[in-house]
Simulated scan of single mutants.
Amino acid sequence: MLTTEMSSHFNDLEKMSVRALLEGMNSEDMTVPLAVAKAIPQIELLVTAIVEKMKKGGRLFYIGAGTSGRLGVLDASECPPTFGVPHEMVVGIIAGGDTAIRRAVEFAEDDTQQAAQDLDKYSINDKDVVIGIAASGTTPYVIGGVKAMRERGIITGCVTCNEGSPLAAAAQYPVEAAVGAEFLTGSTRLKSGTAQKLILNMISTSVMIQLGRVKGNKMVDMQLSNHKLVDRATRMVMSELNVDEATASQLIAEKGSVRAAIESRK
């Protein structure tokens, strides 16, 4: 049996108090970072491969279904505002299309051919990297896409929460974070989803740092799309250049980004 389908360590959930439910879920969640830590050597290999391709102009694609697909779309959508990269540089694709982000599309994950067709819409090529995301490691949509891309000589990775899965076997760079049984049996949006989110955070953030999209520990290329971010940018420039708020604000307004503001004075 898949570990993601194993019976919960807790029973009679409907008889538990709210406090007991929350404490039970929290105790299970505490095991997730430990599982992710064990996967760091695998994550390192995948990140290194991604950086090499992206330095040559490649892109990163996530493919997934259900919760896994939504997590890929989320991570991809946060890269442009956080790191100032083009929207087409990191792309999240979910089985069933964008409709499936908000509402499940029945049987979309069972099509072994559709992921390759979805990727082809982006003129996928051997400069790119494709990461399949599936908690179970058995999702046909994801496995089919990863196999098709690997056959074409495209670098492939995966993020799964079962060891020895068909998806891991199909991917060139598998990442396996075996978090064990879910608090609610089989509900992989819980621990498995948390593990996947942590791993995707690690992948995209470390890749962008390696690509020079961070200075020190600051998001110097972030998009200034709201007042909160403009205020954050102002503080960055004040700190980096040792100038007052008015000067920092003027520099940002003139140059359009934290990086440009800082470089204009150095």
Score class of each variant (00 low, 15 high):
S123G: 13
E263G: 13
D244F: 11
T205L: 04
R235M: 09
A261W: 04
T188D: 09
L211F: 10
E28K: 12
M202I: 07
V230I: 11
S239Q: 15
I199Y: 04
K147N: 11
T112I: 15
A49E: 07
Y141R: 09
S136H: 06
D111Q: 11
V130Q: 07
R70W: 07
P86L: 01
F61E: 13
L167H: 01
K56N: 05
T156R: 05
A169G: 08
S136W: 05
V237M: 10
T4Y: 03
T99N: 13
A20L: 09
I262F: 03
S264L: 06
G97S: 01
N242L: 14
G180F: 03
E245V: 12
K15S: 15
L2E: 09
V175E: 09
Q117F: 15
I43P: 01
C161S: 02
L45A: 10
G72Q: 05
T99W: 11
R19N: 15
A178R: 08
M202Q: 04
L200Q: 02
R235K: 12
G92I: 03
L21Q: 14
T82C: 02
D75G: 08
G164L: 08
V36Y: 01
T67V: 03
P166H: 06
G216W: 10
A178D: 09
E245N: 08
A115T: 11
G92T: 05
E44Q: 09
I94K: 03
V73S: 00
Q223E: 10
T99E: 13
A260S: 02
E78V: 06
T48I: 10
R59N: 08
V105P: 00
H87M: 05
R150P: 04
I252R: 00
R232Y: 08
D128W: 08
G72K: 02
Q113P: 11
F10G: 12
V146L: 04
